[in-house]
Design a protein around this nucleic acid. Structure first.
Length: 1123
RNA sequence: GCUGAAGUGGUGGAAUUGGUAGACACGCUGGACUUAAAAUCCAGUGGUCAGUAAUGGCCGUGCGGGUUCAAGUCCCGCCUUCAGUACCA
């Protein structure tokens, strides 16, 4: 009897389906508790999006691994939950609907049918009775329900969890909002309890919306007016839409958002207690982006009463200024040598702008200007400087040249006894300032190094503070940046651009005026959209300052910043920083925050990069929101009226008015009295309201599906309490790493929210997670020769005449190894065959173009079926092409690339199953390499596992049928068995599936060599193998006379006694190099071993008379002789 | 730039706490069976040198150092590849 995989696999797949072999029991579902008194184990795959292309060989990799683990756990006595379903809302179905007019539900259904067929053929032990589909109203009813829960919740920072909105309302009634410690929108205004009660209902709702965990907000999006849709960042290439190349602008739209930022810290902390891959945790940590620092408020001094005398320096002037600083006159240079680096009594700067005046030297700390006399506008200068609170000292060239020390003494004297006294501390937090700029900084210790500020061009303050003279330039700049997508802006790091606003901020400690610029290196949606620029300590600030000629004060002791900013922290001593001078980074940081808090213009703060997630999509094929609008305020539909089912539309495009596709629905209004969705015509009625037109994003349904599987058919609840209590969380989750910062972060967020609300019992949904690596396709290449006439050749024949004679030629890979060789080989071939006149050969240049060939036309020796290649429709042009073979074969080139249709390297699992069977496919996918690694697929390798299965079969079955005996197994046979038990169990626990396949092969090879046919060995072997190759093992198991499925048979127990050996082949090394082996009894002591080894004649030969210096013996391991 | 992972025969990959590098396969070469092919079975297969041969020597885990009786494995410094991510203040 031959191994017939087809028949066996079909039979057993039918058996499993008919007997519901893999149906998991819930505690409440059976009176006798069934399997539910066993310990539970929940193995989950990331459910697939059912795409039209179907599965390729890379998709099932993770499913096979999880299936092996699930089956293993069943053998180990667990009640295993191993479900599967479909993430069936998604873009491709919608796109297809737009093109064909077919309803996405229809195409999705068809795709699911295909998927299911493909999956079934591989023999997974899924419990299909719990299948979920995110696009099924019975499922998304609960997605809508969770949305309502989020809407009805706020985040209380004091209790550090989400609470019902009712508790917030009662606080508002009692105390207003000033005592509330909540995560809320930035621009919430304080109000008292009286004020709260006085607000209208709509006003109250607007305020509550600022606190809810899901809320409406104006969010900047990439809007493509021509496509009438919002585009994701990666749908934009070079500022135009990827599809169609239409212009894209940044536009504000009202959208639903999720306040995931409230959970930033808990999402970070939670990573500690889950067993997920470190790289994945790292990328989540990175994404959350916690940074510790301070918020600092800078007052703005808007346009000055001095009007036009205020700064008006153009770039040119600034550039000139820069020049001036470098080119000092002789006297200027002499004096600067004495003043610089704090040689004088205080720190001076040279060639500094104050207002629109360029002064020679200034000490900002002491408000003292030193300049050479004889300037034309001396009167105006004196007046302006006095007004600004500066003390002016005028000196002459002659004085300096005569005695610079005398001048320095004069300056010092002025510093000590200033004639003009300025207000000691700035009015930094005074109420008089009209505007303030809040910034977040991680380096409050460098605050004295601030020499300017930069706002994002979109910053709301920009329009308010810009001075008349700068308005034009600023507006032009804003317009230019608005055109660029965010991604583009971020990608373009090299260009430094920005515009001065004309306004100044006051340094909160020194009161010094610092220029306020706008620049697109500052991002509107990170931090506050503004930075305090410390050019000496931040490279971007440094570059900006250099580019625009802004001062770069150095506040680091003994650090040279003439070339680049100093960004290091450790070991840095702060200087020129008032009370922070002389302190190290850590102390300065603490003291700076302490002082800021004391003086009231700043406070310590932890900032997160994680932004609230936009939850609206202007699409059709997604979950509708259970929301209608009354007086412009969103209202939730009561949960008992859910689901709100996606309405029919005639087209899946946005409306002409730019509304989402749901704007086309004719029945999309909420009758608040009849409690149902009604025709839009009834909107005239006072009790009928418009429904939300957006739909939910793809991640909505996938953020909680793992909970639904626990009780997938529950009509009355999200999941029953008992099911949640029993299954709790996913024990093992397998899927791709591409979901690291999307699905896996959002799902953790929802789980924590549901936990806060007491809906689920644990706050992390997956204990352990494994990322499977990608399977790459092994593309096949043919090499096409293309002829060109070389440049600069003077030939009387036209190029065409020369080239026309040359046919298309494909060269076999084994004819050449480099491009140069390729050219020579082709030319020789063409000349030999008479296609190319040898006289022209020198004029012709041959280039090598590799083209993808379909991998299905290539055999295991990389030989191409040339005739089949020519027959392919895409190769119409090559009917007459010549194939330059070698040894009668056309050999293709090989390269591993991502599997994709366009690369003709996709391998369909159906074909593999057809030819070799599901068991071979399963074994082979595991045998390819470590689960988490990317590895290339080469179908030829499958013959190895296929012949393994045939060998296995032969151990049990010969030409007369079952050939298994009940005789006692030999010692040798038991040793093989137990060695295998031990290794396979260890491998499965460590998810090292590739090595256990090798172990099975070794076992079968050994048992075949031993001619073993003992049931005592062969029966347990089947159980070991059954998670990997379930069909053949079921078949052989039943052939051994068992009536029940093998799937829950107890896993064989390893007995160490079978592995005990009495002797060991010791490797004997000399100076660490293994020379020969020597078999010695294992119970030999060190001395006995040494004696035996040294007495051996091979040892004597190796030593050649030299006495060993040292003999190292590790009993049971190795002997090493040093000589 | 930053973060993470990884570099081992012609190929995919093995190798416990440092202890016989290349398990198990693919491919290749030779042989058996066959009219032939497929399938199957047997043998060989890291490089190199010596030898008719059995066999033996030397070199070998990206590169350069180091620790050790002993290094693919540990330490230091580089190089390369892949993946993720980025003006994050």
């Amino acid at each position: 009897m031959q191994y017939n995989h087809k028949e066996i696999e079909e039979n057993w797949q039918k058996f499993w389906a008919d007997n519901q072999t893999f149906k998991a029991t819930n505690p409440a579902q059976s009176s006798d508790q069934g399997d539910a008194d066993k310990p539970k184990y929940y193995v989950l795959d990331m459910f697939p999006y059912p795409s039209g292309a179907g599965l390729h060989v890379g998709h099932p990799l993770g499913y096979i691994a999880s299936d092996i683990y699930a089956r293993y756990k069943r053998h180990k006595g667990f009640n295993v939950l191993h479900p599967q379903g479909y993430d069936s809302f998604g873009l491709p179905a919608e796109q297809y609907a737009i093109q064909t007019g077919q309803h996405p539900a229809k195409t999705t259904e068809a795709n699911i049918t295909t998927y299911r067929k493909q999956l079934d053929k591989i023999g997974f032990s899924f419990d299909w009775s719990r299948e979920v589909r995110t696009s099924d109203p019975a499922y998304y009813k609960w997605t809508q329900w969770i949305f309502i829960q989020l809407f009805n919740s706020w985040y209380n920072k004091d209790t550090d969890k989400a609470e019902d909105i009712a508790t917030l309302i009662s606080i508002f009634k009692k105390d207003g909002n000033t005592t509330v410690n909540a995560v809320a929108d930035a621009e919430t205004k304080p109000f008292s309890s009286e004020a709260w009660k006085a607000f209208s209902k709509t006003e109250q709702e607007a305020i509550l919306l600022q606190y809810r965990l899901t809320y409406l907000s104006d969010t900047e999006v990439n809007w493509c007016p021509i496509l009438g849709t919002v585009l994701a960042n990666d749908e934009i290439v070079n500022g135009v839409s990827e599809r169609g190349g239409h212009p894209v602008v940044r536009k504000k739209m009202t959208q639903w958002s999720m306040r995931i930022s409230a959970y930033a810290q808990r999402l970070l902390d939670g990573l500690e207690k889950i067993d997920w891959p470190q790289p994945l945790k790292d990328s989540q940590t990175n994404w959350i982006g916690r940074s510790q620092g301070a918020m600092v408020s800078f007052d703005i001094e808007v346009g000055t009463p001095k009007g036009s005398t205020d700064i008006k320096l153009s770039y040119k002037e600034l550039e000139a200024l820069k020049e001036l600083r470098l080119n000092l006159s002789k006297a200027e240079g002499i004096l600067w040598d004495e003043l610089k680096n704090k040689k004088g009594a205080a720190k001076f700067r040279k060639k500094y702008t104050i207002g629109s005046f360029l002064v020679d030297y200034v000490c900002l700390a002491k408000n003292t200007i030193v300049e050479f006399s004889g300037k034309e506008d001396e009167g105006a200068r004196t007046a302006f400087f006095a007004k600004e609170g500066f003390n002016v000292l005028r000196i002459t060239n002659e004085e300096v040249i005569e005695s610079v020390l005398k001048v320095v003494a004069k300056i010092n004297n002025t510093l000590q006894f200033p004639t003009v006294v300025k207000v000691e501390k700035p009015i930094a937090n005074s109420k008089s300032a009209a505007y303030k700029i809040d910034v977040f900084t991680t380096r409050p210790d460098t605050i004295f190094g601030v020499s300017f500020m930069t706002l994002a061009p979109e910053h709301p303050l920009v329009s308010k503070i810009v001075t008349g003279a700068q308005k034009k330039a600023v507006n032009a700049y804003i317009k230019a940046t608005a055109k660029r997508s965010e991604r583009e802006r971020m990608a373009d790091v090299k260009t430094i651009s920005g515009v001065f606003t004309g306004a100044y901020a006051l340094h909160p400690f020194t009161g010094e005026k610092v220029q306020i610029w706008i620049g697109d290196y500052v991002l509107a949606n990170y931090g506050t959209g503004a930075v305090m620029a410390v050019p000496c300590g931040d490279q971007r600030d440094y570059d900006f300052a250099k580019h625009f000629g802004i001062a770069i004060p150095n506040i680091f002791e003994g650090i040279d910043i003439s070339e680049a900013a100093h960004t290091g922290k450790e070991g840095t001593i702060i200087a020129n920083s008032d009370f922070l001078s002389g302190l190290n980074y850590k102390k300065a940081l603490k003291l700076a925050i302490f002082e800021m808090e004391k003086r009231g213009f700043g406070y310590g703060k932890i900032n997160y990069r994680l932004r609230d997630a936009v939850f609206s999509r202007q699409r059709y094929w997604g979950e509708p929101f259970p929301v209608y609008y009354k007086d412009g305020m969103p209202q939730m539909i009561d949960e008992k009226h859910l689901p709100i089912v996606l309405p029919a539309v005639e087209k899946y495009l946005p409306t002409e008015a730019g509304e989402p596709p749901l704007g086309r629905a004719t029945s999309w209004a909420w009758d608040s009295r009849g409690k149902k969705v009604v025709s839009n015509e009834k909107l005239k009625n006072k009790t009928v309201f418009p429904l939300e037109l957006n739909t939910m994003p793809g991640w909505a349904g996938s953020s909680w599906y793992f909970n639904r599987y626990m009780d997938a058919n529950n009509q009355g609840a999200f999941v029953s309490k008992e099911s949640l209590e029993y299954w709790k969380e996913v024990d093992l989750y397998i899927g791709g790493s591409e979901h690291a910062t999307g699905h896996l972060l959002y799902a953790r967020f929802w789980q924590k929210f549901l936990f806060d609300k007491g809906i689920v019992p644990v706050d992390e949904f997956a204990k352990k997670l494994i990322n499977q690596g990608m399977i790459l396709g092994t593309s096949a290449f043919v090499y096409r020769a293309t002829a060109f006439v070389k440049n600069g050749c003077d030939i009387d024949k036209s190029n065409d005449d020369v080239l026309a004679k040359i046919p298309t030629l494909f060269v076999s890979k084994n004819n050449f190894s480099s491009d140069a060789e390729f050219e020579t080989v082709v030319k020789n071939y063409l000349s030999d065959k008479g296609y190319l006149n040898p006289n022209f050969a020198d004029l012709v240049m041959i280039t090598n173009t590799p083209l993808h060939a379909d991998v299905s036309l290539v055999n295991s020796s990389d030989e191409l079926d040339v005739e089949a290649f020519k027959k392919q429709p895409i190769n119409q042009d090559y009917q007459k092409a010549i194939f330059f073979l070698k040894d009668g074969k056309y050999v293709v080139g090989r390269e591993a690339e991502k599997m994709s249709k366009s690369k003709y390297n996709v391998v369909n699992p159906d074909d593999i199953v057809e030819e070799y069977g599901a068991d071979a496919l399963r074994l082979f996918e595991m045998f390819l390499g470590p689960l988490d690694q990317a590895k290339p697929w080469k179908t030829s390798g499958i013959s190895g596992v296929y012949s393994f299965l045939k060998k296995l079969w032969k151990l049990y079955i010969d030409e007369n049928g079952v050939a298994v005996s009940d005789e006692k197994a030999t010692k040798e046979e038991l040793k093989t068995l137990h060695k295998t038990i031990k290794k396979v169990a260890e491998d499965i626990e460590n998810f090292s599936f590739n090595t256990s396949v090798a172990t099975f092969m070794i076992a079968v090879n050994e048992l075949t060599a031993l001619k073993c046919n003992k049931k005592e060995v062969l029966a347990p072997l089947l159980v070991l193998l059954s998670p990997y190759a379930p069909h053949i093992t079921e078949e052989l198991w039943s052939k051994l006379g068992n009536k029940e499925s093998i799937s829950t048979v107890e896993f064989p127990v390893f007995e160490a006694k079978h592995l005990v050996e009495s002797a060991k082949k010791y490797p004997i090394s000399f100076n660490g190099k293994m020379r020969f082996t020597l078999e010695l009894p294992l119970d030999f002591s060190k001395d006995e071993i040494e004696a035996a080894v040294l007495a051996d004649e091979k040892t004597i030969a190796q030593l050649a008379g030299v006495a060993p210096k040292k003999v190292i013996i590790v009993p049971g391991k190795i002997v090493n002789i040093v000589h």
